[in-house]
Simulated assay, not measured.
Amino acid sequence: MSKIPTQELNTVMVNNKPTYPGLANQIMQDSIYGPRIERRIKRLLAERSDVLAKQGHHWYFGYLVCAYTQTHYGIKTLLNYSSVTEEIFDACLLPDVS
């Protein structure tokens, strides 16, 4: 029987939708999921760079976000997971303007 994680997920409501501050960064820094995101983005850029669009962020990274939250928090269905996938997309593909 698998052990359910006891960590709590930080949730902030924005426009009546849950958002998860820091979760995208947490996933990207994870020793298992970070490299998976890197491989996914490299593959997407190699295969679809001409049609890669921000509108697809939930499709590109959704399964990794859901797998991470299930593994680390015991959450099977993360509400508004697309807020996290959008942050990952932005971190991976938008230039840093700082």
Score class of each variant (00 low, 15 high):
Tyr68Met: 10
Val65Met: 05
Ile88Asn: 07
Gly56Val: 00
Phe89Trp: 15
Ile75Cys: 03
His72Leu: 08
Thr85Tyr: 05
Thr77Cys: 00
Glu86Ala: 13
Thr77Lys: 12
Ser49Lys: 08
Thr69His: 08
His58Thr: 11
Val51Cys: 08
Cys66Ser: 15
Lys76Glu: 15
Trp59Ala: 10
Tyr68Pro: 06
Glu87Gly: 01
Ala67Arg: 12
Ala67Leu: 08
Val65Trp: 04
Tyr73Met: 09
Thr69Tyr: 06
Val51Lys: 06
Asp50Glu: 15
Glu47Val: 06
Leu64Asn: 05
Glu87Asp: 14
His58Gln: 13
Tyr73Glu: 10
Trp59Cys: 02
Cys66Asn: 14
Ser83Arg: 07
Asp90Ala: 11
Asn80Ile: 02
Tyr68His: 08
Asp90Gln: 14
Tyr63Thr: 09
Leu79Arg: 09
Lys54Met: 09
Leu79Lys: 12
Trp59Thr: 13
Ser83His: 11
Leu52Asp: 02
Ala67Tyr: 05
Phe89Asn: 01
Ala46Ile: 01
Cys66Tyr: 09
Asn80Trp: 05
Tyr68Arg: 07
Thr71Cys: 10
Tyr68Lys: 04
Lys54Glu: 08
Ile88Lys: 06
Gly74Lys: 03
His57Thr: 01
Val84Ile: 04
Gly62Ser: 04
Phe89Cys: 02
Thr71Pro: 00
Ala91Ser: 13
His57Tyr: 06
Gln70Leu: 12
Gly74Asp: 03
Glu86Asn: 09
Val65Lys: 09
Gly56Arg: 11
Phe89Ser: 01
Lys54His: 11
Ser83Tyr: 06
Gln70Glu: 13
Val51Ala: 09
Leu52Glu: 04
Thr85Asp: 03
Ser49Glu: 09
Leu78Tyr: 07
Leu79His: 05
Trp59Phe: 12
His57Cys: 14
Gln70Val: 00
Asp90Cys: 12
His57Ala: 07
Gly62Met: 05
Thr85Trp: 06
Asn80Tyr: 06
Gln70Gly: 01
Leu52His: 05
Ser83Glu: 11
Val65Asp: 03
Ile88Tyr: 05
Tyr63Trp: 08
Ala67Gly: 06
His58Asn: 13
Lys54Val: 08
Asp90Glu: 14
Ser83Met: 07
Val84Phe: 01
Ala53Leu: 04
Leu52Asn: 05
Tyr63Glu: 13
Tyr68Gly: 05
Asn80His: 12
Glu86Pro: 00
Gln70Asp: 09
Glu47Gly: 09
Gly56Asp: 15
His58Ser: 15
Ile88Gln: 04
Ile88Gly: 09
Tyr73Ser: 10
Ser49Cys: 05
Gly74His: 07
Glu87Ser: 11
Ile88Val: 11
Tyr73His: 10
Ala67Met: 06
Ser49Pro: 00
Leu64Lys: 04
Tyr68Leu: 10
Gln55Arg: 14
Leu78Asp: 02
Arg48Leu: 10
Gln70Ala: 10
Thr77Ile: 06
His58Arg: 14
Trp59Arg: 14
His57Pro: 00
Trp59Leu: 14
Tyr63His: 13
Ala67Asp: 15
Ala53Met: 11
Leu52Lys: 04
Ser49Ala: 10
Phe89Glu: 01
Tyr63Asp: 14
Gln70Phe: 12
Gly62Thr: 04
Glu47Thr: 13
Lys76Trp: 06
Lys54Thr: 03
Ala91Ile: 11
Val84Met: 02
His58Ala: 15
Ala53Gly: 07
Ser82Ala: 07
Ala46Gln: 10
Thr85Arg: 06
Lys76Thr: 12
Phe89Met: 03
Leu64Ser: 04
Thr77Gly: 00
Tyr60Lys: 08
